[in-house]
């Protein structure tokens, strides 16, 4: 099962560190990362594999959201299915 992590907010140091730390702690593997910074606005999208995830999806989601609040960014995690459904024929 794969999911998409979206991180959006004002650029600062340690964003990737903070997000990937939580993913690693919960045995979630990062498969792909894309990021861009425009006018100090940071956007990152990660594709992650949750096959060996050691916690419940909701626990991971809460941990990411909490980390987002701490560093002042919006961090979402959503199953990959939604994006594939909406954007592929």
């Amino acid at each position: 099962m794969r999911a998409v992590v979206t991180v959006i907010g004002k650029d600062r140091t340690g964003i990737i560190y903070n997000v990937s730390k939580i993913l690693a702690e919960n045995d979630v593997n990062i498969e792909d990362i894309s990021q861009t910074v425009m006018h100090d606005f940071f956007t990152m999208i990660m594709l992650v594999d949750m096959t060996n995830m050691s916690v419940d999806f909701n626990v991971l989601k809460s941990a990411l959201e909490k980390a987002g609040e701490t560093i002042g960014m919006s961090i979402r995690i959503q199953h990959e299915d939604l994006f594939n459904a909406m954007h592929t024929i």
Binding site: D32, I45, L47, L82, F83, M86
Partner: peptide, 16 residues
Amino acid sequence: MAMFKDVLETVRMIEK
């Protein structure tokens, strides 16, 4: 993986 802009479009549709 859906393209970068597709992911952002979906997120924007839901959030904004």
